[in-house]
């Protein structure tokens, strides 16, 4: 038997499904919402349902969008170069940093044999289909340098080169503020491989 009335119990159960929220926190949040003003709880409920109704996935690059194409794909000044990322969060980080001014392509994951994720489960086919119509000459692979990410990078780079596109990948190595002494062997190896002429 629950100690809460059924509607409160439902709210707690729903909140506890959110990432990082356990039963205890969910109960605290639910009680807070119960005590909060009617305007606040109604505005929260509306904004949740609006997000589900209005935000979709860009049919071209798989970024978040409120239209068929996302803002970046609609911007005519951002063309020519494509940056491939693992997920939307990575795209947003690059945008926030202002690090890149071309278009993106979100793979929606990486090759993960142990999770049963192969090339057909990622947006690789869609990536290759964009090359010609958008006259893409250069692709930057900005996939996270995990084992699975590195495999994905090599695999996609091979496919793109076959299409005659120039391919590069983001540098991997010592992070800013890092220290060689405390850096592991794989990173040191990659940092050496990725060295460049000093400016």
């Amino acid at each position: 038997m629950s100690i809460y009335p059924p509607s409160l119990e439902r709210l707690i159960n729903n909140l506890s499904k959110l990432p990082g929220i356990g039963q205890k926190t969910a109960a605290r949040l639910a009680l807070y919402l119960f005590r909060a003003s009617r305007e606040f709880s109604e505005s929260l409920a509306t904004s949740i349902s609006e997000v589900k109704k209005e935000i979709g996935i860009c049919s071209r690059c798989f970024n978040l969008t409120d239209d068929d194409l996302c803002q970046i794909c609609r911007d005519p000044s951002r063309d020519g170069i494509l940056c491939v990322v693992e997920e939307v969060g990575d795209l947003l980080a690059l945008e926030k940093a202002g690090a890149f001014r071309g278009r993106y392509h979100v793979l929606q994951g990486v090759l993960a044999p142990l999770d049963g994720i192969g090339p057909e489960n990622l947006r690789i086919k869609e990536l290759l289909q964009r090359l010609q119509p958008e006259s893409i000459k250069e692709v930057i692979l900005a996939i996270n340098p995990s084992a699975e990410g590195e495999t994905t990078t090599t695999y996609i780079a091979g496919l793109l080169r076959k299409q005659g596109v120039s391919v590069s990948q983001i540098a991997r190595g010592i992070p800013m503020g890092g220290d060689l002494k405390y850096t592991d062997a794989v990173t040191l190896k990659r940092a050496m491989e990725g060295r460049r002429e000093s400016c």
């Binding site: 090759l111 044999p113 590195e150 495999t151 090599t154 062997a185 794989v186 190896k189």
Partner: peptide, 21 residues
Amino acid sequence: ELKNAFIALRSDIARLGYASL
């Protein structure tokens, strides 16, 4: 502590696939 990451597996999807299997 990493002793061997078998890094060469990452350059070939088939080898990583069989390693994972």
